[in-house]
Design a protein around this nucleic acid. Sequence first.
DNA 1: GTTAGCACTCAATAGCATCGAGTGCTAATC
DNA 2: GATTAGCACTCGATGCTATTGAGTGCTAAC
Lengths: 341, 341
Amino acid sequence: MLTDRQRLILNAIVDDYIRSAEPVGSRSIAKRGGVGFSPATIRNEMADLEELGFLEQPHTSAGRVPSTKGYRYYVDHLVKLGEVNEEELARVRLFLAEKMNQMEQMIQHAATILSNLTNYTSIVLGPETFSNSLKHFQLVPLNDETAVAIIVTNTGHVENRTVSIPKGMEISEIEKVTRILNAKLAGVPLVRLRSRLYSEVGQELGRYVTHCEQLMDVLDDALAGEQGHHVVLGGTTNMLTQPEFKDVDKVKTLLDLLEETPTLLRLVSSLPDGIQVKIGAENGHQAISNCSLITATYSFEGQALGTIGILGPTRMEYGKVISLLDVLSKDMTRLLGKWYK
Amino acid sequence: MLTDRQRLILNAIVDDYIRSAEPVGSRSIAKRGGVGFSPATIRNEMADLEELGFLEQPHTSAGRVPSTKGYRYYVDHLVKLGEVNEEELARVRLFLAEKMNQMEQMIQHAATILSNLTNYTSIVLGPETFSNSLKHFQLVPLNDETAVAIIVTNTGHVENRTVSIPKGMEISEIEKVTRILNAKLAGVPLVRLRSRLYSEVGQELGRYVTHCEQLMDVLDDALAGEQGHHVVLGGTTNMLTQPEFKDVDKVKTLLDLLEETPTLLRLVSSLPDGIQVKIGAENGHQAISNCSLITATYSFEGQALGTIGILGPTRMEYGKVISLLDVLSKDMTRLLGKWYK
DNA sequence: GTTAGCACTCAATAGCATCGAGTGCTAATC
DNA sequence: GATTAGCACTCGATGCTATTGAGTGCTAAC
């Protein structure tokens, strides 16, 4: 569809623009090595590329800027996956070597390292607790009225909340309740917990415990933990150094979007496995219409558990980011394999 | 030190400037009701006030702007503590009525409501876990190699981390360890936990458990939870709507500061009880030299537990914010009293 | 097919006059 | 003696115009 020379020129323009953030003209392309043609020739090709929709011109006497279609072509056909450089690789390895045996920690670290290495904003999505099951339940009385209910899942995730103890309940009863619940509910998927509570535990509890009604309410409450994704951001302020965000209003729109977890989730989750690149408007959000989102999934036993992603301006170092995400996601997958084995 | 008329005028200037964010001139002060003098008179007084250091002039032909000293005087002597208006009060009460029986929740909600009602940035500091004591310790094995260690404090705070189980250790032994630890360590202040572990528990454990050495390391690790404050922000992007932050660089400096928890802690903690107002440079941080920080403490049994605060431009609605913080901090204190009683 | 040459476009920049909000000072007024 | 009207003065903000220069498209020569 494009001639070799057109590809060469498009590539040069995108590369240049990514570096400089300024519309690039025929002269500067001609001067840089690798393209052995005069500005005039390049101008002609640029005009063609614009007609084909790969380039745009901010105004008549300015250089060209890649369009979304241009970036798309660049990402799909032209980009050279930059070798992750030595130093970066070293830092990723260091990250993995760190003592880290908890999911939350891994997610946090991944977000930090990604934003540090790229100077963009990172978005890391933890595994859904959806498919987890109950490992252990514990009620710890604090005083006569309140207790802490603790849920531990098979993945080591811990949820807790304070609950009120029904009046007149004894400590010994609480221990009994804890035992019964563990016996009946261990191994049950979190999503089923509450229905199981009523179907299987209710009667049994009634036999041993007074105040059963109230207790059931309390337990119901305690088990209503959030199931779903856990999302962590890194380097949110990195965006502010990008020239496309020199306008405070744009910054605010973006930061507001980043603070809205549900929107963020919709944006990042439910993307197919592997590396995905969403350019500008492809993300379907006004606030990031001049941003690109690159994501990769990490998995366990072939099933994607979560996502790591980088949000940057459309004028983003695709090659570098893609290869970095690739490396890190694979490393995370490997790490998970080691843990859960 | 100041004449009544000077006070009246200073007050008018600060009020006007807070509303408009523009240097205020003699004419606009004369026009607004409440000051029955001509612009010329006011000009004379303004010149005096400037000489005394209460006002500043951006340039010769501009109006006056309050100096830090001016704000200080305004806050100390002039500001009318705005009645918290009906609607706001209703929202605060609603907040307190919400089902909320966990510290973390209360803190989170307080931050949200403060930033919503003021359109500034809120900073809420949770109680130090420093003085808390251990209520309950639990080791939940996940598989042969790892377990989750859970610590519950007397205030209902839960900490957890994943630890590795020494090779060859039996489940029954883990239960034994848990029992011993609870018997020996319940009620011990968190700061003492680790020394007590060695002084009192070590020997005892040795009697019942093989792999004692490794186990001690693991426990040591598990108990090394963070003691200290827990800080939550609300409305970080609110600042971006303030005209003093139309410059992206300033925004970045500010946001970077807000993300740096230790700095933030140094800023907010160790302030005296009651309502505190720190204006501009008084905060001692370049990044917020044009911001004011107003804080109030909430307490239990007369002892301050934590702090709620509002960070806004020096040109901030002091009256409104002070009275809001006052109301909320007292409500939080009351709520805590109810919980812990 | 490629490129040199040239007229043309247009944002950005600089220079300049104008405007007006605000001041300080002095003299008249209450 | 305090207050105020009047007036000259200051200086950022605004708007206009000319200039500059990076970049284009087109045509004709190579």
